[in-house]
Design a binder for these strands. Structure first.
Lengths: 233, 233
DNA sequence: TAAATTTTCATTAATTTTTCCTGAACTGTA
DNA sequence: TACAGTTCAGGAAAAATTAATGAAAATTTA
């Protein structure tokens, strides 16, 4: 990940903390900005348009949550990642529960390694630019996308309704396109290790999925299992 | 298998589960350690250097996948076996996919017997150290590569589908390019010592492989066995 | 209760695995 | 060199395994 393309805003009333965080994030390659209070945070944020904001909850005058609410109102800041920094012992229910609009929160004291990792993960998640690594096992699928909330399978924009078992099965295959999943593995992951169903059951589900997706997606590897692959033969 | 030589780390935020797993694994003879959150897991792992880590995906603060990523970064932990414990219905693409770096995952509820078996198998698998012959070609260096996950044989970038027996046979030969495998050895490794098949069976499989790979790969050493070699005559 | 979903079952189909037979290549020997 | 005795390759096909299919029963859901 090229970190130099990311702007991070740190907001804390303690200069010491700002300095430590700043030092470490800077060393990682991020562009770092700081603010020591809510008001300042809003100004810097508006000007710099950071990708991620680390916000201390406990601050005088305008606290983290209020600042967060204000930040969210700024143009282009609706999707900025806002992470709360909170001291241990503060009321989690208040922090985790409220809808001030934070994306995540960290409990102080935070190990720097953890914080850096979290920042990285959050940025990457928001990045959502699925790159293709040539040659390597590409686990992001091409034309098939799952909508787990609605139990929909979207293939080339077309929405297909899938019943639960079929959906779960497809989801499993899709979780690693190309990988051959053995029957055992499929039963284990889709049905669970409690339930025991006949071998033909799986065949039938595979057939149903094939009927909906059309041919060329699910391939049988006789004696081994099934795999999903879009391009191949 | 002497289980007392293995250290297993259990990570789950639910104490009950930890207790049950701990009890059972302990009874099997493993050395068991526990942690109730990702942070603790990292600390214990760093100190105890476990051989296998059972990691619940759903945990507060730092979830299993994130923890996994962190664990992988610890020194000497690159090859530790990490197994995810996941509830059925969770997004497979999140669990199996992504580069969290898990070796396997189990779906809850897991039968204890299943879990113990899986642990045993995984530990044993990791035990086998692939032997290298000094002068021989490395299996990855040649133009033939096996992709076990996809069950494909890749020869000069070209993907070839191999049926099971042929795949296993080729895998054996490829495990030590240049070495001559005796018929006896091949039958033992590929068919297992219980199954008894005629001598001609092997010839036929070799022929099939030759048909697919083309000549120049598998060489017959009359009266001794077969070997795979890419360069020689 | 009807509709949809999931599972089973009997058959059929396809592929894989194995056997068998013929002949070529090689080995050692008279 | 010619002769038996092995050992393996190649063609063809039987045997066995495994999966696809059609239809229907069982189960769950709406």
């Amino acid at each position: 990940m090229d970190k130099s393309g990311y702007r991070i805003l740190l907001v804390d009333d303690e200069e010491d903390i700002l300095e430590i965080l700043s030092f470490n994030l800077d060393r990682e390659g991020y562009q770092v900005f700081t603010a020591t209070n809510g008001q300042e945070a809003l100004e810097v944020a508006a000007r710099q348009q950071p990708h991620l904001i680390l916000l201390d909850v406990m601050m005088p005058e305008m606290d983290g949550m209020e600042t967060c609410g204000e930040l969210r109102k700024l143009p282009g800041m609706e999707k900025t990642i806002i992470v709360f920094l909170t001291a241990r012992g503060e009321d989690y229910s208040q922090i985790a529960g409220f809808d001030a609009g934070a994306d995540d929160y960290l409990v102080k004291p935070v190990k720097m390694k953890v914080l850096l990792k979290r920042v990285e993960v959050l940025l990457r998640r928001r990045e959502q630019v699925p790159k293709k690594s040539p040659g390597a096992a590409d686990r992001s699928s091409g034309s098939i996308v799952l909508d787990r909330d609605r139990y929909l399978v979207i293939r080339k924009g077309e929405k297909l309704a899938f019943p639960r078992k079929e959906f779960e099965l497809l989801a499993l295959l899709l979780s690693w396109p190309g990988k051959v999943f053995s029957r055992e593995e499929i039963f284990d992951k889709v049905w669970g290790n409690e339930v025991i169903v006949g071998d033909r059951t799986l065949d039938v589900h595979i057939r149903k999925i094939r009927e909906k997706l059309g041919p060329g997606y699910i391939h049988t590897v006789k004696g081994v299992g099934y795999k999903l692959e879009e391009k191949e033969d």
